[in-house]
Write a protein that binds this DNA or RNA. Structure first.
Lengths: 346, 346
DNA sequence: CTGAAAGCGCTTACAG
DNA sequence: CTGAAAGCGCTTACAG
């Protein structure tokens, strides 16, 4: 069936050791002539070495496990793509797994990855659980955490997003545009994102010497409907607001819909900021200004971190002192072509 | 470092052959006592066998390559998820690759998968190329094609979508609702999808004894802007139409936007059908009726096909006679809560 | 019912 | 500069 190193060696009249060296470019000590002879035979038979056999002796598979809740959730493809790009660059392959945020499933995948001798694991850990599954604790390979923070001895790196800073940027941007009474239509407070963004919102107000008014902060769901409802509530309660910082893009879309329905112009009358910069937002509300999550970067950086770790000797993997955390910043995407008339004077 | 079968065997006072048999459940011939002794030691040391070592002798890695243009394109996560679910069910892992529709990249990935001894490959082949890359032709493992058709000896299965039938269903649905002058706002005709959907559109008209009118068919891009522009054109040209079948959801969104702007009510005055059923559509136009692509099914079925093939002996893989094609049907997703007043009488 | 041995396809000291 | 040999961690006939 498939041709092996043995056949190549025989055909080229050299030992398999020589073939191996030529193929792996460890051939400083091989004559030009021999090398070429080998290379020719390799080409002639389209010989592709069996990496698994090699892995068995090198103890490196160049396989990385990427454990995500669900690739179908628009949040994750960017991460996957980033990780895959970096992996490819460095000669790694990525096995991906969908856990649906279920701990048993996650455990099963970790075990499968362990069996298949993955060199490392990048994981967006299930938020639902308070404790790291035992199997991860026991896991012998380097683990990089993404997006969701978590403390554990066995983690060798983290790549997180600065939600608080993102919110701070968003609110500061609104202030810069001249808005002063900024409402926050948040997602559910029990989510870490909502909480962190609330912190950023408060800090931005503080930094700009704007009084925090809790009546302007409302908690709902990360859905379009909540954006509509939230705006309705604000209007009904006759709150005095001139801008809305929305917990995510869906809320922003809902808010804009409702505002437009009531006859407000955006951003002239009322400013609106989204968060997450999902594809949909730019299609539905082409003028929506949003905070973009660095998803691609997150995946890319995670893989980068992992690769650096893997360059080291297997022994020194999980020294806790070696833990590295990267916190990525978000970015403001301004799409408003219309100028607000609330611009502050320079 | 990691414990091996040798240690387990020694600790349990049996040979490694026995341990292997117990672990792989080929233990019909092993005494209850021996088995338990082995199992105990396995548990004690949390022994997880090295699958790669096994693969070397069984010639099966239980790794499948999934080659896609770009996981970031909303069309693909569903496919990936479907494939992964089935793979997981059957004990396979999936390595995923993004080719960006570039042939060189695709070749590189195929080679990498070959090196890593993937048992099979599921591929959405780059549309840009006319010929199958040589490396795929040479590829020794079973290959399943998804979404994009292509002829090649080395293909052992295909999972495609019946675009023509999908369009037929969509147009028939509109007819059923009482609409009679149905326009088709298509994507670019050079794409296979646009062409096939056009065929379905024509056939549906024919089957319902409606005269085909080429002035009602317009080709543009798969974008919101084209939906708006297309409607504008139809109105300006004073075409007589009472429904629009749109080439995809984005076009449908644009069309609905424009129609509403001009004061038409949907679906009372004018019916609109989308195609693809992307997430965005249901958010933006909650009442839009669409044709749903069976993406998840496509991935799932592809993996199923592959797994069946892999159960057979390695020798019989690529017999062309064994080629199986699965054509999946689309599904109409009706979201209109409002009833059209054009309903045909029963 | 269980074990000794061969072998999967490589890499890597080590000798020469 | 190149080859013989050991070994990576398993599975699988084959003996007994």
């Amino acid at each position: 069936m498939k041709i092996t190193i043995k056949e190549i060696a025989k055909e080229a009249n050299v030992s398999i050791a020589t073939v191996s060296m030529v193929i792996n470019k460890k051939d400083q000590n091989i004559t030009e002539v021999t090398r070429n002879r080998v290379l020719e035979v390799v080409k002639k038979y389209n010989y592709i070495p069996n990496a698994m056999a090699g892995s068995l002796v090198t103890q490196r598979t160049h396989i990385i496990g990427l454990v995500l809740p669900d690739i179908t959730n628009p949040f994750f493809p960017g991460i996957a793509r980033g990780a895959e790009d970096k992996a490819n660059e460095k000669g790694y392959s990525i096995i991906f797994c969908n856990t649906d945020d279920k701990l048993e499933v996650q455990e099963k995948y970790i075990e499968s990855l362990t069996k298949k001798m993955a060199d490392g694991i990048i994981i967006a850990h299930s938020s639902s659980s308070e404790k790291m599954p035992e199997i991860l604790e026991r896991c012998k390979v380097p683990i990089i955490l993404i997006d969701r923070d978590f403390d554990s001895e066995s983690i060798c790196g983290k790549v997180l997003v600065n939600n608080s800073k993102g919110a701070h940027m968003a609110v500061s941007y609104l202030v810069e545009q001249g808005y002063k009474k900024i409402s926050y239509l948040s997602g559910p407070l029990k989510t870490r994102t909502a909480y962190e963004r609330l912190e950023g919102y408060k800090k931005a107000l503080w930094d700009n010497e704007i009084q925090f008014d809790e009546k302007l902060v409302k908690f709902g769901e990360y859905k379009i409907e909540w954006g509509q409802k939230g705006v309705k509530e604000l209007l009904e309660e006759q709150e005095d607001f001139d801008a809305i910082f929305c917990g995510n893009d869906l809320i922003a879309i809902g808010a804009m819909k409702e505002l437009k329905k009531k006859g407000y112009r955006i951003p002239e009358d009322i400013g609106v900021m989204g968060y997450d910069d999902i594809y949909i937002a730019s299609l539905v509300e082409p003028s929506l200004t949003t905070v973009r999550q660095p998803n691609y970067q997150m995946g890319y950086k995670a893989m980068e971190l992992l690769e650096e770790r893997l360059k080291k000797a297997p022994g020194s993997y999980n020294a806790p002192s070696e833990m590295k955390t990267i916190t990525l910043d978000t970015e403001i995407i301004v799409r408003n072509s219309v100028k607000t008339n609330k611009k502050v004077k320079p």
